[in-house]
């Protein structure tokens, strides 16, 4: 399985992601430059963490217009696997590939610590090796990890999770926070979503944990 790691000016976890795929997963991997229109026949795309284009306006606001993102959107629409980590999650939300948006942490502080996440659904390619309810400890490191979506979207996400019909689901929650001590950056407990996946033929996941670290 060939992986492509996107590189924007300001990406800074691209080499982490590359290293994990090459050294730990032992799979072929290549960097994909933001100005390119070529996904180089990759089977899975990783949108890494960092500060794409400096994130001066809003996180991911400019990155969504990058030439490579047009290709990623097409790839996702055709059922391609896309994983957004940290800034990558923000970019996927800005690009409309995942519902909702990431706002500044409720406590207004940068949070860098390991957090416990509970696996909410295992019928996604990203969590199929986990068991439902399994608790994973994954490091986070971000200023804008406060997930927000409107009440209708949230209800829909929860409904899809309850229904658990996997690939047909439009979008669902893959991981949720576990316990009060998890240091979740969200202001409203019911919106403490850590990772999402979207379906409808599309399959992409955004998540906050820097699994690569």
């Amino acid at each position: 399985m060939k992986f492509g790691v996107l590189v924007f000016p300001g990406s800074n976890c691209d080499h982490d992601a590359y290293h994990v795929i090459a050294a730990a997963a032992k799979q072929p991997v290549t960097f994909l430059w933001h100005a390119s229109h070529d996904l180089e026949n990759c089977d899975a795309i990783i949108v890494p963490g960092g500060f794409a284009y400096g994130d001066y306006l809003r996180t991911g606001a400019i990155a969504k217009f990058a030439p490579i993102m047009q290709e990623v959107s097409r790839f996702a629409a055709g059922g391609g696997l896309v994983l957004g980590i940290c800034n990558g999650f923000q970019i996927l939300c800005e690009a409309g590939l995942l519902p909702g948006a990431l706002m500044r942490n409720a406590g207004l502080k940068y949070i860098c610590k390991p957090v416990k996440l509970r696996v909410e659904s295992t019928d996604t390619p990203f969590t199929s090796a986990c068991t439902e309810g399994e608790v994973l400890e994954i490091p986070i490191g971000h200023m804008e990890g406060n997930y927000f979506c409107d009440a209708d979207t949230l209800a829909e996400l929860n409904r899809e999770n309850l229904r658990g019909d996997g690939w047909g689901a439009r979008a669902q929650i893959a991981y949720g926070p576990c316990g009060r001590a998890s240091g979740n950056p969200c202001a409203e407990p019911e919106r403490r979503v850590c990772a999402l996946r979207a379906g409808d033929g599309i399959c992409q996941q955004g998540r906050f944990g820097h699994g690569s670290q």
Binding site: L57, A61, C93, P99, A101, M103, F148, C149, D150
Partner: peptide
């Protein structure tokens, strides 16, 4: 299209 994120 650019200055706002209509979600929030």
């Amino acid at each position: 299209e650019v200055l706002t994120n209509p979600v929030i």
